[in-house]
Simulated assay, not measured.
Amino acid sequence: MAASSALLLPLLTTGTPGQAAGPVKAQANVTVIQAVPGATVDVSVDGRSVATGAEVGDILGPFELSPGGHEVTFTGPGVDVASSLDVATGASTDVVLHLPAEVGGDPVVHSYDAPTGAIGPDKARVVLAHTATVAPADVRVNGETVFTNIANGEFAEAEVPAGTHEVALLPSGSTADPILGPLDVALEARTLSMIYAYGNPRDGSMNVIAHTSTLTADGAVRPTTIDTGSAGLARGIAVTPFLLGG
């Protein structure tokens, strides 16, 4: 979908006019995802407008923010949401506006730290987040259930062989009638794909939003660990490791 939002300049720390420039502080990168079907919203960070008229599927940024706490707000017809965000030096974070699990619920916001660490050759990293109006779901990759019972706002992270993989989202405990997919997802080596399942299968709005970045090599030969986790606003939940072939 072509972005309809009017993006403004990234937020940058500035000095006082007339003062000598000091050392440049390392920044954090924040990307904003609009995942509410039918909504048109304006986005502000710390009271400064960064986008207007953002529609579902728009990927805004990345914006450079100073390390520390910030507030991201979304406003529009039927939408008025403010979310606190804390970012670390050099980190990359996605902030996602989406619908809750319950039908008719007000939009909510979750943040997801992008795992940008180095990766081995011929591998790709994927973060798949459940931001749809559905109950907890399972994820199947190439016909195998690799994540179970992921609730709205939670995510799964995996490192998989580069190439094309068939991915489907299904009601927990089911192996038929996918909520989404199966989809063929092409993953290039040494990339990170942040993927968000959004919408409501009852009204045909179920879809995905994805964006990809390049990772550096770490020299490893066989990184195959898969972990489940929670959304960025629900840290501290235990994770369970799985192993995916290879």
Rank of each mutant, 00 (worst) to 15 (best):
Q27C: 03
Q27D: 15
Q27F: 07
A28K: 04
Q34N: 06
Q34W: 01
G38H: 09
D42R: 10
D42V: 04
D46T: 07
R48G: 09
D58M: 02
L60N: 08
P62M: 10
L65T: 12
S66R: 08
P67C: 12
G68N: 13
E71R: 13
V72A: 08
T73V: 11
F74E: 08
T75F: 06
G76C: 03
G76W: 04
S83D: 13
L85C: 13
V87T: 09
A88V: 05
T89I: 08
A91Y: 00
T93K: 04
D94E: 13
D94W: 06
V95E: 02
L97S: 05
A101P: 01
E102P: 06
E102Q: 09
G104Y: 02
V109M: 08
V109K: 02
H110Y: 13
S111G: 05
S111K: 10
P115E: 06
A118V: 00
P121N: 12
P121T: 14
K123Q: 14
V127N: 13
V127M: 14
V127Y: 01
L128T: 06
T131Q: 12
A135C: 06
A137S: 15
D138F: 03
V141L: 15
G143R: 05
T145M: 04
V146D: 01
F147G: 01
F147N: 00
